[in-house]
């Protein structure tokens, strides 16, 4: 168990981890900058009936349609109305471009690797594989997220197979 956690922290290699920090409610999260393709303002999300459950809908990103995952819904937090600071972080999960809705994006932080600790036992249980650790910056606690893990393995497979399914039919 300890080894597994050690591995997770090991993924954040290098002396300093560069993370994009964002907020969900009162908590601050960070995601490795290499996982972020771009950050865009919230645009109108088109609901797609009968789409896979983890998908909020689709948006138009410069003519390309990409699915959207709402991180609040994902983490079982209450839904809120979007504000001026609501953002979509565009990332890639299993070769698919995906947009992740967050409350706001703050800044890019350089967190020395020694300041990143394992997630406390309590929150690092089953179903939270996406938490890589907790980074400390002065008084702030930044929950380090692996965005590629925010959907479950099954969901990921589903996402990856979407294109193939279409070709086969």
């Amino acid at each position: 168990m300890a080894d597994a956690k050690e591995d997770k922290r090991q993924q954040l290699s290098g002396e300093v981890v560069q993370v994009v920090s964002f907020r969900l409610g009162s908590e601050e999260y960070g995601v490795d900058i290499s996982q972020v393709q771009e950050i865009i303002r919230l645009v109108e999300i088109t609901h797609v009936p009968r789409a896979p459950r983890f998908m909020e809908g689709v948006i138009n990103l410069r003519g390309q349609l990409i699915p959207i995952i709402d991180l609040r819904t994902r983490f079982g937090m209450s839904r809120i109305d979007s504000t001026k600071s609501t953002r979509i972080i565009v990332t890639e999960i299993g070769n698919k471009r995906v947009g992740i809705v967050v409350d706001s994006v703050s800044e890019v932080l350089n967190i020395p690797i020694e300041n990143v600790e394992d997630a406390p036992e309590m929150i690092a249980g089953v179903g939270t594989e996406y938490i890589q650790g907790v980074g400390k910056m002065d008084e702030r606690l930044i929950i380090m997220l692996d965005l590629t893990m925010v959907i479950s393995g099954d969901e990921k497979r589903e996402l990856e197979q979407l294109g193939e399914q279409a070709v086969a039919s």
Partner: peptide, 20 residues
Amino acid sequence: DVVGRIPGISGATILGNGSI
């Protein structure tokens, strides 16, 4: 290839104002 095959939906289009 974005959301899978959905019965009743054949695709999407982007309208002049950018909405889907």
